[in-house]
Nucleic acid binder design. Structure first.
Lengths: 236, 236
DNA sequence: GCAGTTACGCTACGGGTCGTAGCGAAAGAC
DNA sequence: GTCTTTCGCTACGACCCGTAGCGTAACTGC
């Protein structure tokens, strides 16, 4: 996260420091306005007025609407990064599903997430910002859950003999690789896309609630399917 | 789809008819502009100029940017509704995955789909429009694939004794019910959310391609998982 | 203290887009 | 030919954008 850096390089800076309270007020005002008027009708002038700051202050910290909204939403993802160990892979998946759904339950998250993703289609810098602030944190939960399941013996440990994905060779810049140092990161990424994608689609497109019942069904589907991917990995 | 109705009530109307060519030009211009400049920088004046029509003509047919974009994108979904029978559930899933990914391969679809979904958060009419023009057509493919799999015997037929979803009782207005007249529509809906959500998430968030390899993995996960949902349906 | 530096609130501005209104001309229905 | 509706065009007020300039406030280092 973090706005425009005012100081040039190193830490020590002179002069009047930026108000951290203003930062919080601006981000909160952004979320509030987002929930009320939506993305397209959101104006920076309105945000500044809600936050009780001048419009120019806003532009001194964020280049534009997109970046501000990303930071405003990213703050919601900062709070609860860890996930308690619920004792089984199935329960952990249910936990992460409900955790993610809880975030999407806030109207400002719903509106903002889709909007910034749409904007990121034409803005590489914005995509990186989203990845660092939001996506990587969610993906970390998947890696964590997989490692726990391996420790429990629910799924086999990483097999060094398991050949790397031929279509995703171990390229240093390969986004399939950096996460957990696993031998087969494509499984983590597949699960990540399935879990996060299904929850988002359920909430945003199908407009149906993600409740305990649905989470149980999705987790059941995945646990059984994951077992199949390991036991009969060359079946398909 | 369909813009603003000019005539008052019944079919027959007198006077100069609306130019169908203008409609096509406007929608094509919208897609073109969307792919180039993105959602937030898209202006209706620009679209009108690209289409070679007056800006007022545009406002006579669509209430605003959102509705225009929905119709422009929906036209892409109209073309290929059916899916060839590929002989197995796994192959059918792969087919629908690649089919959906093909649509998302167009930059205008990527940009527009997320943007209109974000806007739909605050606009019920827009949500209905999206549902009718886009979502229902995609969901139909899932129902079709499930019926084929049942005919092949890959998954058991609908069990009349299968109790309806307690959290989704057979309410006439229940969106879990209307699709295929199945005894357990929640399975169709779950698969729909998982498949469509995973593809969208893979393309939009992970920014990775949906290729044959990935489709095979997702299909494998689902086929195994679906079998588990049927054989051990009360396990979770 | 004092000077130096940076952030802040405020005002004002040109530029762009929105969505609408009014007009005369064009195109089809009767 | 007459009637009805659409079309292209121009013009308009309203709004928002993003920036510049100013005087003031807050904090640092001497």
């Amino acid at each position: 996260m973090c706005a425009i850096r005012s100081g040039l390089s190193s830490g020590k800076r002179t002069g009047r420091p930026r108000s951290a309270a203003a930062d919080r007020a601006i981000l909160a005002a952004t979320r509030s306005a987002l929930a009320e008027v939506g993305w397209s009708r959101l104006t920076l002038g309105d945000v500044a007025a809600r936050a009780g700051v001048a419009k120019t202050t806003l532009y001194r910290r964020w280049p534009g609407k997109n970046e501000l909204v990303v930071d405003a939403v990213a703050a919601l993802f900062e709070e609860q990064l860890e996930l308690p160990d619920r004792g089984s892979l199935e329960a952990d998946i249910r936990g992460v599903v409900l955790r993610f759904a809880e975030l999407l339950d806030r109207p400002e998250t719903r509106t903002a997430l889709m909007a910034v993703i749409a904007e990121a289609t034409h803005d590489d810098a914005l995509r990186l910002r989203i990845r660092a602030a939001i996506v990587d944190r969610q993906k970390h939960l998947v890696v964590l859950g997989r490692k726990r399941a391996q420790q429990r013996g629910e799924i086999p440990p990483d097999d060094p003999a398991d050949p790397a994905d031929p279509e995703n060779p171990s390229d240093p810049s390969d986004p399939d690789a950096p996460a957990g140092g696993a031998a087969a990161p494509w499984r983590d990424n597949l699960i990540f896309d399935v879990v996060a994608g299904a929850v988002v689609h359920r909430v945003m497109v199908s407009s149906e609630p993600v409740d305990e019942e649905w989470a149980r069904r999705l987790a059941g589907l995945l646990v059984v399917g994951l077992g199949g991917l390991h036991t009969a990995r060359n079946l398909f």
